[in-house]
Write a protein that binds this DNA or RNA. Structure first.
Lengths: 344, 344
DNA sequence: CTGTTAGCGCTTTCAG
DNA sequence: CTGAAAGCGCTAACAG
């Protein structure tokens, strides 16, 4: 059962006939043109109602050159991308902004990376939100050169508008907090060092240490891979190389921090008594971690919301800045020693 | 900067001119019509290449009456719906299936519940995947009556094709496992009892208890609300009413189980020594819970994948069954006593 | 204020 | 095998 069966098509023509007007009038009434007599408008609206008429978005779009669809592509090397709690929140922010403006969200398929351009060229979407760092510069350059309306989220590229977190500041805040907590030796663990965002976090972290007259040894910096246990391996590596344990560990993001915590625990180390630990992002799990993870919160929803707003503005012909940076915020929980907020 | 700027439009006309053929031929070549001379086809394809031509999905859709877009609506009462790890996996399965057939995923906005119908009527999508139980029967009846191609996922409704998990079986499996582990008194905690899926889990659970000559007291069944801590409150309530603790607790889903674990812990109870605990779903967190949660795994990805496949089949004019049930599977971890697999 | 008309870019008969 | 022509349903001039 449930084979084909044409969902009855009712067009603007039918409405016009029933209301006893021309199709142009129906169109006007529906578009809220002021030039329509109140009585006529009502008659049209009523006809639409009884007929259950809805404008064809296809025909409308073909004529107006827009679809009211916004493409969203998550560019993350982490395999099942939708699963990533970080991006999931970003999408929430995008939803929020699109909802407010009657736009629809077209989620670009995970693997169809290069097909992204096609989405825009086929006119399937009016604009694109490209989220994350795992995009080739080549693709981005094409977007820029062909002048396709796109806004980058959590990633930046010369000549394309983007919204990012203040990664450098996140590193700085972490360093200051850890230093204020009394730590004197440090380690930085991450999934990889290719991700420019992680790199900026590391830079900021280093800066914070240096400004306190401290340093981060090169061998105390390790990348453990992009799998679930990247933080674990990175932590293991650091401990091997240092032949000891640092007083504080700063992880490039929360997953890495939680994963590193396991490596620490497997050595019988207690957090924060033996070693302080903090991450970045403040994903949901962070607060539920044992012990609750101190972290630098990134405004994930804001990233999505602002990104969408910028795109919408750009589509409306408004000028948008090339770069928008969202502030981050220290969230002290139980993997570090509490300090007065002064270190900010 | 980044104001308007028309992304240059190249149409089929341009391609035809460059290739020195008529537009009909271009269309045929692009659609893989056999009736085109190989030489001509090549010339056309090359012209497309040099011009960077892509068919307008709007014009194409208007003519053919399809969009190749599939709408996906998550109907969950849990506020930030995208955040729900369960649905996130379902979407992953949908993606998987759509990707294989060149369809696009239009994520319906969270709040636009009633706007769902419009999505289809406006011709914005060819069909709809409605995921979850939080939809009114009224809306579903409209889908049915207007013969709109829709497939329900994780929910069922008379007259509409759907794919669901074997909730009843999940309850049965849980009961048998808990009984086999030696428990003799039980409790059932849930976020709510309105959700038909939860109801079926409870029924199956009861059945499993009864078949072992045991029972589930009415006051040992409690709903704690749909917030994050629903399981916690439900558990609290049960303990108050029972003036004691049951030997085993079955939670309607994993979040409720993990939340109930906190209530148990706050009373100084140890799992599984003092009380056995299990949930349903096997969301990612379940394995990372402390201790790792025994649960009945629901094939979340399968739900999405099969749902999408059914919809695709229906759109292709094939007949699809009204109901497809996916099996569930016992996953023994550390919140219950291990038993031989015999209780299945 | 309202109707008529010309396409938007593509697919698809219908004739060559 | 290929071109010409007729729309798909709607919007936007252009005339009343």
């Amino acid at each position: 059962m449930f084979g084909q069966g044409a969902p009855n098509k009712v067009t603007i023509r039918d409405v016009a006939d029933l209301a006893g007007v021309g199709i142009a009038t129906v169109s006007r009434a529906l578009n809220g043109d002021a030039e329509v007599a109140e009585a006529t408008r009502l008659r049209v609206l009523e006809a639409c109602e009884t007929l259950g008429f809805r404008r064809s978005s296809l025909a409308r779009g073909l004529k107006r050159g827009t679809t009211d669809n916004i493409g969203v592509a998550i560019m993350s090397r982490h395999a099942p991308v939708v699963l990533n709690p970080f991006y999931t929140e970003v999408i929430g922010g995008i939803e929020e902004a699109l909802e407010a403006s009657e736009k629809h969200l077209l989620l670009s398929s995970l693997k169809r990376r290069e097909g992204l351009l096609a989405l825009a060229q086929e006119g399937r979407v009016d604009g694109l939100l490209v989220v994350g760092c795992d995009v080739s510069d080549g693709v981005l350059a094409q977007f820029r050169d062909r002048n396709i309306p796109v806004v980058l989220v959590d990633h930046a590229f010369e000549g394309l508008p983007s919204v990012v977190s203040d990664h450098w500041q996140a590193g700085l805040i972490a360093a200051r907090h850890l230093v204020a907590g009394g730590s004197r030796s440090f380690a930085f663990v991450t999934e990889n060092l290719d991700n420019p965002n992680f790199g900026q976090r590391l830079d900021g972290f280093r800066h914070g240490l240096v400004e306190a007259g401290l340093t981060l040894e090169d061998r105390a910096v390790a990348a453990g891979g992009d799998a679930w246990d990247g933080g674990y391996f990175a932590m293991e590596r650091v401990m091997e190389r240092l032949a000891g344990i640092p007083e504080a560990v700063f992880a490039a993001n929360d997953p890495a921090a939680m994963s590193a915590a396991k490596a620490l625990a497997s050595r019988g180390l207690t957090i924060p008594d033996d070693v302080s630990l903090m991450g970045v992002d403040d994903i949901h799990l962070a607060a539920h971690h044992d012990p609750p993870l101190t972290t630098v919160r990134v405004d994930k929803v804001g990233l999505g919301r602002v990104g969408a707003q910028l795109l919408l503005a750009r589509l409306a012909g408004e000028d948008v800045p090339e770069r928008t940076t969202l502030p981050v915020e220290l969230v002290i929980r139980s993997t570090t020693w509490p300090t007065l907020g002064s270190e900010r």
